[in-house]
Amino acid sequence: MADVLVVDDSKVMRDMVVACLRPYPGLTFTHASSGLEAIERLSLQPYDLLVLDLNMPDIGGIEVVEFVRGQDRLRELPIIIVTTRGDDASRTRALAAGASCFMTKPFTPDAILSEVRGLLEGRRA
């Protein structure tokens, strides 16, 4: 069992991520439509995986990563950053801030699934 927090201001994108990960057994999903909502949820309950969009209103993905890595409790939380072609600079910053890996749109369902498998199973091992 693992709780996944999917953060994106685009509902279609959140739905796509969930659809891609659905075949992985035992995942439950929570949606957050903004970086602020993500931080609130992360502060209130534990999650096992964070899938995060970089480009959002208010505060972006990088700030969420910075927040997460600033919390002792969340230091080990795997974070998948979803980016788009052209995000190179922010990608580097997110990596520096402590993101675990990247998925660049377009990605296939299998690609993100295998990343998730790696992150969740690596953590358990």
């Binding site: 201001d9 685009s10 480009n55 788009t84 052209g86 990605f107």
Partner: peptide, 8 residues
């Protein structure tokens, strides 16, 4: 956002 979604 349009760009990312369109890529997907």
């Amino acid at each position: 956002t349009i760009k990312g979604l369109s890529a997907m």
